[in-house]
Write a protein that binds this DNA or RNA. Structure first.
Length: 489
RNA sequence: GGCGACGUGGCCGAGCGGUUAGGCACGGGUCUGCAAAACCCUUUACGGGAGUUCGAAUCUCCCCGUCGCCUCCA
């Protein structure tokens, strides 16, 4: 059974096949680095991290490009207003690049903690101005754009004569026109829905470059078209991003690619994949609503909605427990539940490592493994795949206690599946236990001591040891013949 | 207004025509020095209405409600 993915372009699940096997080109819209990374960044990054990991696991040679936007997107409506990076720089009285560097570093730090792999290439918009200018020149030469006072706009009306516009987001220009507002500062544009490829810069503008049209800076969609096609060619296999980027950003990218490369661009990418958003109490998380939560706040617990901090894997697990195309409603209750569920799985994995093989198997490992991968292949349904692992937890205790059995081969296959799916593909990490081996020996000693105390009916001592272990995050499981233990926090 | 998504048991969340999803939390029992764990049991949902079907949470239609996009946003 092959991997199928939901393609926003066709609104269907389609079997995935690379254009040039075994190579896969994947481009994902990364963050605009002007603020702290938040839950939305985490979800998007984790979603495409899993896709990247899975494609790699399947044997594809993946070139994964995820950009850093450090210039271009404007604050507020239409074409006026201020670049967000610039605004932040002005407010903090530092160079724009300092803002970009600082928040890029914070983004990397958060992603590393969440065990999100770095992309193969992480290009910045400011580092690819020549590529953007070249693309704009090509679009002008082909007649799909016009220049006004040092700014260049994509001529959507002209473009529509040769290509459909609005396929990805399922809308047509007439509707857009009906819904669009007449805004200040649009006098330069021939039509309200035209969008800027290049903007003339005032002398005081902090970031500006030379161009054939004078000093200026790039429009807010061209960077992704330029960088993705520069590194991956046109068309490439997969373009990803958050659902909120479908329109206008990705629609504009498709238009730019067609305008530059013609029919050959074929919608720029074969698969357009979008992760759904994170909501807070049913509402979209956004700065304007004042309800956004940063990744660091989840880790530290320093947020009004949180009573304590949670480790990175709690957040990663929460994301994995929902399908990426569903909205994910965030709450401390959900996060805490995810964390406990994650620990339960990790304890079972640790115990699985100590199971001894038997002459025969009482459990169909291969069939189970196939079900797991069937879920992953079904548009990356990590939630359903994880459910199958939970169904294993009780069985693993039985295996460990000699109430169920597996042959050497089946046992290895089971362990392999846990490793591959949980760690390699889903990108989970075992709990951050300090020096696990020594810790384990120490705990075992205390557990033995308690067993002895109990056998001598020295219950005060036995309970003291149990309580102290509990406080250290060690939960005891008493069986008549032995005492097992597992980590809680 | 246009486009789109969704409404599942206390909470989170799979589900794509027919066997218990799963997680978290809760109750009862067995067990236990007391607990926890384990085991057993209880709980058994699908916004409302109509329709298709032998059979629908799953398909169709209508209604109600929530949310997203149409402006920067993952």
């Amino acid at each position: 059974m092959a991997l199928t993915l939901y393609n926003t372009l066709t609104r269907r699940k389609e079997p995935f096949a690379p254009l040039n096997p075994p190579y896969v080109g994947m481009y994902v819209c990364g963050p605009t680095v002007y603020g702290d990374p938040h839950l939305g960044h985490a979800r998007a990054a984790i979603t495409f991290d899993v896709l990247y990991r899975y494609l790699t696991f399947l044997g594809y040679k993946v070139r994964y490009v995820r950009n850093i936007t450090d210039v271009g997107h404007l604050e507020g409506d239409a074409d006026e207003g201020e670049d967000k990076v610039l605004k932040r720089a002005r407010l903090e009285k530092v160079e724009p690049i300092e803002i970009a560097q600082r928040y890029t570093a914070l983004y990397h730090k958060a992603m590393d903690a969440l065990n999100v792999l770095r992309p193969s290439i992480e290009p910045t918009a400011t580092g690819h101005i020549p590529q953007q200018i070249a693309m704009i020149k090509q679009i002008l030469e082909r007649g799909y754009a016009y220049e006004v006072n040092g700014s260049v706009y994509l001529d959507v009306e002209r473009y529509r004569q040769d290509f459909p516009y609005g396929i990805l987001s399922g809308r047509n220009v007439e509707e857009l026109l009906a819904g669009s507002r007449e805004l200040e500062g649009q006098a330069e544009k021939r039509h309200p829905w035209d969008f800027a490829l290049w903007k003339r810069a005032e002398p005081t503008h902090l970031m500006q470059w030379d161009s054939p049209w004078g000093r200026g800076y790039p429009g807010w969609h061209i960077e992704c078209s330029a960088m993705s096609t520069h590194y991956l060619g046109v068309p490439f296999d997969i373009h990803g991003g958050g659902l909120d980027l479908v329109f206008p950003h990705h629609e504009a990218e498709i238009a730019q690619a067609h305008a530059c490369y013609g029919e050959a661009a074929q919608y720029q990418a074969r698969f357009w994949i979008h992760n759904n958003l994170v909501t807070i109490e049913g509402q979209k998380m956004s700065k304007s609503l004042g309800n956004f939560i940063t990744i660091e706040e989840v880790f530290s617990g320093r947020h009004p909605k949180l009573s304590r901090g949670y480790p990175p894997m709690a957040l990663r697990f929460l994301v994995l427990q929902a399908h990426y195309r569903s909205t994910l409603d965030f709450s401390e209750e959900a996060l805490g539940a995810a964390y406990r569920a994650y620990l339960r799985l990790m304890n079972a994995y640790r115990r699985l490592g100590k199971v001894r093989p038997h002459m025969y198997s009482t459990f169909p490992v291969e069939a189970w493994r196939e079900k797991v991968f069937a879920h992953l292949n079904d548009d990356l349904n990590t939630a359903a795949a994880l459910a199958l692992f939970f169904e294993q937890v009780d069985d693993i205790l039985k295996l460990y206690r000699g109430e169920a059995f597996l042959t050497v081969e089946d046992l290895e296959k089971l362990r392999q599946t846990w490793r591959e799916v949980l760690f390699d593909i889903m990108g989970l990490l075992p709990p951050q236990q300090v020096e696990w081996e020594r810790w384990e020996r120490l705990v075992n000693t205390l557990v033995q001591l308690r067993r002895q105390a109990r056998s001598e009916k020295n219950f005060p001592l036995a309970d003291f040891l149990r309580d102290e272990l509990q406080r250290a995050g060690v939960k005891l499981l008493d069986f008549p013949d032995e005492t097992l233990w597992e980590m809680q926090e």
